[in-house]
């Protein structure tokens, strides 16, 4: 293919769109997803993406939160992991987190992109409920595209239905 894919990337994000994206016509969201009795989120959608090249803090590692099949609920067993992430973020003001939502290989790949995003956003909502500033959180779905374990059985799938935490310097 000789075409020049590297060519000009014209960003056609008209101001009107940006404006729309920053507002939530219906006002704040309801209580955080899946949080048992946690606080209101009250934020206005997702934070803008950080500008420029991200400086990823590869040495900072926290356990991934795991999810049930076809679910974006934060399980009780996973709450401690999110508490640890929240504590770390609150103690490190210059650090942000990308929550990467993932799915197992079963089901529609396109639906899994959306489900992975829901998982990342459920983890985000939980962190916000624990007092983390939503402006420091990015969500990214990999759907079923980035399994942690390449196996084809439940022992692999349970590890692949996850939200991973990638920290970056703000």
């Amino acid at each position: 293919m000789k075409n020049r894919w590297f060519g000009i990337m014209v960003l056609v994000l008209v101001c009107a769109l940006c404006a729309t994206s920053c507002k939530n016509r219906k006002g704040g969201r309801r209580a955080g997803d899946n949080i048992g009795g946690s606080t209101e989120l009250g934020d206005q959608g997702l934070a803008s993406r950080p500008e420029g090249e991200l400086q990823i803090l590869t040495s900072v590692k926290f356990d991934a939160v795991l999810f049930d099949y076809d679910s974006a609920q934060i399980r009780e067993s996973e709450r401690g992991k999110l508490q640890a992430v929240a504590d770390y973020l609150k103690q490190n003001a210059g650090v942000g987190v990308i929550i990467e939502g993932n799915c197992d290989e079963r089901g529609s790949a396109d639906y899994n992109l959306s489900l992975g995003e829901r998982r990342a956003e459920a983890a985000r909502a939980y962190l916000v409920g624990l007092g983390v500033d939503g402006a420091n959180i990015q969500t990214k779905s990999y759907g079923e595209e980035k399994p942690a374990n390449a196996g084809h059985d439940e022992s692999a799938w349970r590890l692949n239905r996850r939200g991973e935490f990638v920290f970056f310097k703000r």
């Binding site: 060519g7 990337m9 014209v10 960003l11 992109l113 990015q138």
Partner: peptide, 14 residues
């Protein structure tokens, strides 16, 4: 071969 981004909002665009 021109490629342009039409949606890069925060989170998922797909």
């Amino acid at each position: 071969g021109e490629r342009r981004c039409v949606a890069d909002f925060p989170g998922l665009n797909s």
